[in-house]
């Protein structure tokens, strides 16, 4: 079975079933925004949501993660976590799934990151396809992430009274096959899916003025540009843009001792290139002085460097960095400002 069909009236039954299978995280409301949270009551789940404050990366790359347990005397070290828990991420947008694919590329690149991979092994991703824009900040169509492009176990599409579920892994297939109310999708349902996808083409239009290859080219020529100066003036250096980015993966490592001053834990904690001291080295030299060059670096880490290194854009188009910036720095505006000056 490749495509399955779930009647909306059976959605809650399926959610109850999934909830029992593993630790279950889904989007829920938090004040006027949304967050991924563990679900107690399936009624709390919001499937119509704008991207959550933090992307689901917090579950496979936690903000503060234990790495190593150690003892000073007699000296001894041990893994901090012996057993990782199975978990399901439910209702993930395609932009965030693209984020997971980017992280995969980074953490699988040698030397592989065991902590990330251990968590990732335990993860089941059930996505939901967006049929309309979340808000004006998203640039998913330019990045090609408004449509599913793999990286999930199951992908749901709302076709009216049913969800069509694309089965993309064995793990996913089990979760569909084990319940009797999910059937194989009928031909007419598949026709509806095709029609909905066509309609979607009319709604989602590339948000950048230039095509992605042109954007890449413009980055090649824009290392010195007024655009960065302008950003540097606006930027307050809070680091929100990198914290909320589904593909930012920088971290710092620190040791914390217990009060007996003999046992301790080694942690890794999210870090950000927007921090003042991020590129400072011993002796006080700072390789990226000023908010202007730090903002520029962030953009190059999305549209230039990873393309050269991994042949992949590290912007997913989720729009979080723009949405969260109180200084009003817009990714779409910034990229658009770069393209006309550099390309004839």
């Amino acid at each position: 079975m490749k495509y399955a069909s779930l009647k909306k009236t059976n959605l809650n039954n399926w959610l109850e079933y999934l909830k029992k299978k593993a630790k279950f995280y889904a989007p829920r409301k938090k004040e006027n925004l949304f967050v991924f949270r563990p679900v107690k009551d399936v009624a709390d789940i919001c499937l119509e949501y704008i991207p959550t404050i933090l992307p689901p990366k917090k579950y496979y790359f936690p903000q503060k993660e234990r790495l190593l347990r150690f003892r000073a005397q007699p000296f001894k070290t041990a893994k901090a976590i012996d057993k990782f828990e199975e978990f399901i991420l439910f209702g993930v947008h395609t932009c965030d799934i693209a984020g997971i694919q980017c992280m995969d590329v980074v953490f699988r690149d040698g030397p592989e990151d065991p902590n990330y991979l251990n968590r990732k092994d335990m993860m089941t991703i059930i996505g939901i396809e967006c049929l309309k824009y979340c808000d004006k900040y998203a640039n998913c169509a330019s990045m090609g992430n408004h449509i599913p492009r793999g990286g999930y176990d199951l992908m749901m599409v709302d076709i009216g009274d049913e969800f069509i579920i694309h089965i993309n892994s064995e793990k996913g297939e089990k979760l569909v096959k084990e319940v009797d109310f999910i059937k194989e999708a009928t031909e007419s349902e598949m026709v509806t899916l095709g029609r909905i996808r066509e309609e979607k083409n009319e709604i989602f239009k590339e948000e950048f003025y230039a095509s992605l290859p042109k954007v890449y080219e413009s980055f090649d020529k824009s290392f010195v540009s007024e655009v960065w100066k302008d950003l540097g003036k606006k930027c307050v250096g809070c680091g929100n843009c990198t914290a909320v980015c589904p593909t930012c993966y920088c971290f710092d490592v620190s040791d914390e001792m217990e009060l007996n001053l003999n046992d301790g834990l080694r942690y890794r904690i999210w870090n950000s290139c927007q921090m003042d001291d991020f590129a400072k080295v011993a002796g006080g030299e700072d390789f990226r002085k000023g908010r202007e060059s730090r903002q520029r670096h962030r953009y190059y880490r999305k549209f230039k460097y990873p393309v050269d290194k991994f042949n992949r854009y590290f912007c997913t188009g989720c729009g979080r960095c723009t949405r969260t910036c109180m200084a009003g720095i817009s990714l779409i505006d910034t990229v658009n400002a770069l393209t006309p000056v550099s390309i004839d």
Binding site: L33, L54, K58, G237, G239, A243, M275
Partner: peptide, 20 residues
């Protein structure tokens, strides 16, 4: 720390005060 409170606040996934 020589970075602003926002960076910890975001990790705690608070709704930004400016949002409110």
């Amino acid at each position: 720390p020589n970075y602003p409170v926002c960076s910890e606040c975001k990790m705690n996934e608070n709704v930004c005060r400016y949002e409110k």
